[in-house]
Amino acid sequence: MTAVVVTVWTLVCRVDQLEPERGAAALLDGRQVALFRTHEGTVHAIDNLDPCSGAAVLSRGIVGDRGGVPTVASPVYKQVFSLLDGTCLDEPEVRVDVHEVRIRDGIVEIATPWAGR
């Protein structure tokens, strides 16, 4: 038996629905994802659930950068997370999942792994 991992791309929204340097939350099959569009126009997706507070609010944090790494600061206790790999830059043992994003025909799509056989 070999497990086949298929990536399913879920259509989320139009890219112009995301405002530059701001976040938005999306609901994907029960999981909450926070989407961010940077100044340069790149779209990042990480988990919306803030592991430090347990509230699903990372999309409502302030977008910025630390040493050039694009970041979001949790609006609850202000820990800063890298949008590139989801690590918490203030508490290195904490991290959130990062989701693959692509933009096709002006639509933002997020990868959700689907393991079949």
């Binding site: 989320v12 629905q17 939350a25 609901l27 994907l28 347990g54 509230a55 699903a56």
Partner: peptide, 14 residues
């Protein structure tokens, strides 16, 4: 809005 792809759906964690 709660979610960009489901604007009226309440946050299920609340």
């Amino acid at each position: 809005v709660s979610f960009v792809n489901a604007p009226g759906t309440p946050d299920p964690t609340i």
